[in-house]
Design a binder for these strands. Sequence first.
DNA 1: CGGAATCCCCGTAGATACTG
DNA 2: CAGTATCTACGGGGATTCCG
Lengths: 107, 107
Amino acid sequence: MKTETKPQETCPVKITIDLISGKWKPNILYYLGEDTQRFGQLQRKIPSISRRVLTLQLKELERDYLIQRKAYLSPLKVEYSLTQEGRSLIPILISMKQWGEVYLASR
Amino acid sequence: MKTETKPQETCPVKITIDLISGKWKPNILYYLGEDTQRFGQLQRKIPSISRRVLTLQLKELERDYLIQRKAYLSPLKVEYSLTQEGRSLIPILISMKQWGEVYLASR
DNA sequence: CGGAATCCCCGTAGATACTG
DNA sequence: CAGTATCTACGGGGATTCCG
């Protein structure tokens, strides 16, 4: 009945949580789930985030293969979009959103 | 600033993440999902956690209504179990576990 | 425009020792 | 058995300034 593995050192749940638990990462992933976004677009949509922190969070998300960075020179700009893996995370974020709404409503 | 952005201040996703992103909380919830656990049982099943930190994480989980604490005097012991809300979180933890396993396998 | 370089604050959690 | 009490280390993230 229980072909259970104990939570290992590399606990998959913990891995998943760590990937998305930056303070602004859910927001960023949310907007990238809607569409490709430029750095400045994200900045405007998340007004309270600083350039520095936005840069850091984007770098981490890119390092973790959840998003892709594309730099252009002609019109100087940078575009971010979800990778396949990032996109596959969206359903989980949606469940968490729904759970969180119920949780907030009941408190 | 009055601009209503879609991910609100009280982003439900962020709430959910924060509730479970203590370093040991997924492990604790995992074991409580199996059965009621005494303090010492949790300690033995998560050997690398200290009593202090286990206490803290349990207190937070209790404060957030995810687990319940029951103290007994006759045989001096304390038992922890999931609340209804905590139990409703398990499916999400399972999705995260599955996603994390795929993620780890592909890297 | 999209960063990089510093500096600082604060919260999480580790180590260790003591207790009802 | 199931905690408390300190003291400390580390790292994320905020504010500000400079750069190709």
